[in-house]
Design a protein around this nucleic acid. Structure first.
Lengths: 350, 350
DNA sequence: CGCATTCGGGAAATCGTTTGCCCGAAGTCG
DNA sequence: CGACTTCGGGCAAACGATTTCCCGAATGCG
C-alpha cells in the first residue's frame, strides 16, 4: 500500500500507539498485561484491535536490551550428530520452548578453540545461561564463567570443576554411571557369565571413569577379575578397534561396552571374528540410543530426554533467580535386556 | 574489587570511553575499524588497551537493534536427531560460524503448530533469514514469508511453493534425487538383478516422489517392471513394515530403499525372514548417513554437509543484499557400493 | 598572511521497549 | 464543600551501541 516497493517495515509499538491514540507506554502495559494498572476496557480493546490489525510483534531485541534478559539459553555440545547427545538436546530444547526460551546449540567438536569462541559469542548475545554437555570443556573456560556467577548447568559431565569455585551450588544433571555399570555386570553374571570383559570409554572423561569404577566393583563382588580394554573415543570405530584387541586370544563369554556406539563396534568385530552375538558372546551397551533397539542390543537405559529437560529447567530457574531446592540431579538408569545378552553356554572354561 | 558482592556488571562502551578519555563514538569507530576516519595512533592504542583491560565486549543486542540485523539465522528441521538432517545442520552451522553468524536450530517435529510458533519466535528475534529443511512445512507459512521478501532458503525440500509467489529467485539447495535413484537401479541392474523392488519414501514429500520417478524411469529403461511399496515415513520402523509386506511372496533379488533408515528396516525384515544380505537379496539405500558405512550398506551418497553449508551461504548472501548468481543449487549424488549389494545369483527366475 | 583543507574527534539522534514517576480529572469521605 | 484517593494514562529516562553531522585546530597553498 504505502511505499511502492511494498517495503513497509514491521510495525512498532509507536505505530500501534499512534493509531490507537494512546502513549506507547500504554500499549506496552496492555500487551504485557501489567498488573496494578487500571485501564478502561474500551482503551484496552482498542489497542488490542489495532495491534492485531497491524500484526504488531514486539522486537525481542529491544525488549531484551531494556530488560537485560534475552530468554535465550546457549548449549555447548561436542557433537550434535551423536544420537545420545541429540536426545539430550531435544529434551533441553523442548523444555526451553515450553517456557518461552530459545536454545542456541553450539557444536564444539570438542576443540577448545571453538568452545572458547562460542562461549564468547554466547556472552556477547547475553544469553541467560549456558548448558554444558561438552565432555571435557576446558575447566578454565567454565571456571571463569562460574566465577562470574554466570548461570551454568552441567549435563552428563564430570565434577572436576569444583575445586576452587565454591562449587556448592552449581547445577548438575547426570546419571548414575556407576550404578548402571553395576547393573550391567550383575545382569551378565546372573546369566551365568564368568568371563566378562569391559570395553571402557575414554578415561579422560568422568563418565568413562565412573563406568569403569562401577564395573570393577561389581566384578569384584562377583569374585571375577575380568579383562579391561579402553576405547580412546566414544565411537563405533574405537569400539571396533578395542574389541579386536580383546577378541584376539580366547574371547570372553560376555562383553560390557561403555556405551552403545562402542558396543556397535564390538558387534562388528565379533561378527568379523566369526563369533555370534549372543550365542558365542553376550553384549551389553550403555545409553540406550534409538539404534540400540534396532539392532536388539541389551543396554543400560539413560533418560536422555529427561536429562536435557531437567538441566534446562534448572538453568532457567537459576537464570530467573528462583531458589533451587536440588541443584544436583542424579538420574537413575535401568537395564534393558534385549537379544544381545543370552545365558552363558553350559560348557565350563575353555 | 568494587562492590563487595563482585557484582560488577559487564563494562560498556561508555566505560571504555570514560577511561580512555574519548567519546563513545570514537571507541566504536576504533573497535569497528571504520575506514575513512583519521585517528591518532596514540588514541587508538589507548582505547584498544583500555578495552582489553576492561575485557570489553560489545552488546550484540544493542548493536543488532541499531543495525537492524542480528547476524543470526534460524533453521527449521523436522527432527534434529535424524542423522541425515544432523549432517545438514552441521554444515549450515559451520558455514554460519565461519561468517560470524549464529544459527538457531528449531525442532519442528513436523507438527505445523510448532512450525508456526517457531517462525514467530524467529521473526520476533529478527533473524536475518530462515533455513527450511522441514520436508512439508505448510506452504502458507512459507508463502507468507516469501511474500514479505523475508530471506528464506529451502534445503532438500520440494518445489511446490512457487505457485503464486513469483518464485523465481527463492533460494534452493537440493540434490539430484532422480539421478541418484537412477544410479541405484543401474547399479543393481549391472550386477545382474532383474527382480528389483523399491521401497519408496512418503509420497507426501517431493524427495520421496522424485526418487520414485527416477526409479521407475530407470527400471523401464532396463526393461524391468519392479515391485513398489511405500513406507509412510522416513524411518526404520516404516521401512521394516514395508519390507515385510514385500518379502511375503517370493522375494525380489534386490531392493532399493528410498533412504538409509528405510534400508535398515529392510535389513532387519530380511534377516527375520531368513534372507541373507547380500547373498539372497541385494540392498541399496540413499543418503549415506554415517551408520550406513558401519553396517556396510551400499547407498547413494548425498553431500549433507555441503548442502547445509551451501544453503547457509546462499541465505547469508541474500540477507546481506549481495547478488546471487545461482540461486538454485542442485548437487550431484554418487553411488557408494559396499557389501550389501552383490551380484545376482546365477540361477534363473524362481 | 589569508584561506581552504585535512586531521582528530565530539554531539546527538536513533534502534524499539519498558517502567518509575507524575498529573489531571473524577469520585469519596468527613 | 474541601481534602484525599483512585482512575486512567502520559512523560521521559533508560538499555548499549552506531553513524551522520558538525567543528575547532593544525596544516597546506598561493
Amino acid at each position: 500500500m504505502r511505499g511502492e516497493r511494498g517495503k513497509r517495515a514491521r510495525s512498532t509499538i509507536l505505530d500501534v500507539a499512534r493509531l490507537a491514540r494512546v502513549h506507547p507506554s500504554t500499549v506496552s502495559r496492555i500487551l504485557n498485561d501489567r498488573p496494578g494498572l487500571t485501564l478502561r476496557p474500551e482503551t484496552r480493546a482498542r489497542v488490542l484491535a489495532i495491534s492485531k490489525r497491524l500484526d504488531y510483534r514486539p522486537s525481542a531485541l529491544a525488549r531484551s536490551l531494556r530488560l537485560q534478559r534475552t530468554l535465550t539459553l546457549g548449549m555447548l555440545v561436542p557433537d550434535i550428530a551423536n544420537a545420545f547427545l541429540a536426545g539430550i538436546i531435544k529434551g533441553a530444547e523442548e523444555a526451553c520452548h515450553e517456557r518461552g526460551y530459545t536454545l542456541i546449540v553450539c557444536n564444539t567438536a570438542d576443540v577448545p578453540e571453538r568452545e572458547a569462541t562460542y562461549l564468547r559469542v554466547l556472552r556477547e548475545r547475553q544469553v541467560d545461561g549456558v548448558l554444558v554437555a561438552s565432555a571435557r570443556l576446558s575447566d578454565e573456560s567454565i571456571g571463569s564463567l562460574l566465577a562470574e556467577r554466570f548461570p551454568v548447568a552441567l549435563v552428563n559431565r564430570g565434577t572436576h570443576v569444583d575445586r576452587g569455585t565454591r562449587g556448592n551450588d552449581d547445577l548438575w544433571v547426570h546419571v548414575d554411571d556407576r550404578g548402571g555399570a553395576v547393573a550391567a555386570i550383575d545382569h551378565l553374571a546372573a546369566l551365568g557369565h564368568r568371563r566378562i570383559a569391559h570395553v571402557a570409554g575414554p578415561q579422560t572423561t568422568t563418565t568413562g571413569r565412573e563406568r569403569l569404577v562401577g564395573t570393577r566393583a561389581a566384578l569384584r563382588r562377583h569374585g571375577l577379575t575380568g579383562t579391561i580394554v579402553e576405547a580412546e573415543a566414544w565411537s563405533e570405530v574405537e569400539g571396533y578397534r578395542a574389541a579386536r584387541q580383546l577378541l584376539r586370544g580366547d574371547p570372553p563369554s560376555a562383553i560390557f561396552a561403555a556405551n552403545d556406539l562402542i558396543a556397535f563396534g564390538v558387534l562388528r568385530a565379533a561378527r568379523e571374528a566369526g563369533l555370534d552375538v549372543p550365542e558365542d558372546v553376550a553384549l551389553v551397551g550403555f545409553n540406550d540410543i534409538p539404534e540400540a533397539a534396532l539392532v536388539d542390543l541389551s543396554t543400560v537405559h539413560v533418560p536422555q530426554h529427561e536429562m536435557g529437560a531437567r538441566a534446562a529447567e534448572l538453568l532457567i530457574a537459576r537464570a530467573e533467580g528462583r531458589p533451587i531446592a536440588e541443584p544436583r540431579i542424579l538420574l537413575e538408569t535401568r537395564l534393558v535386556a534385549r537379544g544381545s545378552s543370552a545365558p552363558a553356554k553350559e560348557r565350563v572354561t575353555a
